[in-house]
């Protein structure tokens, strides 16, 4: 144990100075989902499957627009998976904090 301790005197810390130094995230990370409104057909599948009701649909069918409530989102990726036309993609954005709930609503318009 002593040897292990003293070895650490000469090692740089394992923790990172987070807000100043950022780790590059893996490609596979499920971050904020984005809708590609050109592809979307308004089939309502993502809206129906979302486990936490984070997806709000305004309008119907191919006219539908989306409101994504980040404060409710679980980032499970079910919407991406269920989308029949691959209109939803999970990005690797994960710093999504905001000062109020209004800032947590992201709108996708046609």
């Amino acid at each position: 144990m002593v040897r292990e301790l003293l070895k650490h005197l000469f090692r740089s810390p394992a923790t990172s100075k987070y807000p100043f130094e950022k780790k590059t995230s893996f490609k596979a990370v499920r971050g904020r989902p984005v809708w590609d409104m050109k592809r979307c057909t308004g089939c309502r599948l993502c809206f129906r499957d979302c486990p936490s009701g984070a997806i709000e649909m305004v309008g119907k069918g191919s006219e539908a627009e989306f409101k994504h409530h980040l404060d409710r989102c679980l980032f499970c990726g079910q919407c991406e998976e269920v989308c029949p036309v691959d209109a939803i993609a999970m990005t690797d954005e994960f710093e999504l904090a905001s000062y109020d709930r209004a800032g947590m609503i992201i709108e996708f318009k046609r």
Partner: peptide
């Protein structure tokens, strides 16, 4: 934890299982 994030896309809630198999 990093390995799990690499495979599944999340550190804690991997969401790998789905009914009928795995997702990734």
């Amino acid at each position: 934890m990093d390995l799990l994030e690499l495979i599944s896309g999340s550190r804690v809630h991997y969401a790998m299982n789905t009914i009928g198999g795995v997702r990734r």
